[in-house]
Amino acid sequence: MKIIRFNNVRQSYPNGEGIQLADFSVGRGEFVFLVGPSGAGKSTILKLIIMSERPSSGTVEVGEYISSSIRPGQVPLLRRQIGMVFQDFRLLQDRNVYENVAFSLRVIGKSGAYIKKRVLRVLADVGISHKRYQMPQNLSGGEQQRVAIARAIVNEPLVVLADEPTGNLDPETAKDIMELLVKINIGGTAVLMATHNYHLVEQTGFRVLKIDAGVIRE
């Protein structure tokens, strides 16, 4: 079963950049790399998936939502089915680790008791529960990325989108984060990871989508 499907998608920008042709899908439980040099359009693909951008032509389908027919009020509902991990972590800087992860569950209206139980469980899974009362700015890069991953998976999304999640980390920490994402994938969650780190991709046997001159090829 496909959870993400790009149907002849083109996305053009006034400066001439963009996606010339994207026609691919990601199935449930798959781990897929999206590789290409910086500026090739990897982030554009992710923006199209979370529907912060709509394609110039073609359609993007994510779960039950289709880019051509989704209403603005449905965008938050779509994003609740997607876990996002960013290169710059994007944690809520005014809240501690626990509150950052709990926020994803508050968004979907879970009860306080459930949130407490679930957050502690996920923080333990990503190995950061001992820092749950720390503020993000007091954590290392690797620790912040673990928190971001915990936040991405806490509400059991269909897919985790990781945009250069190891880009700001040293090789050792990057390896740890990669292992964590693989562990999440083994648990049944699909992962679509954008990276320009070919070395990291070669170490795994996962499916690879390459962006070359705005065209996506397997």
Partner: peptide, 18 residues
């Protein structure tokens, strides 16, 4: 000053009301 926080909240699917 909370622009980044608001954007992050949007990305994790927080509704306008939240």
């Amino acid at each position: 000053a909370k622009r980044d926080i608001i954007e992050t909240m949007e990305l994790v699917g927080a509704s306008r009301g939240l």
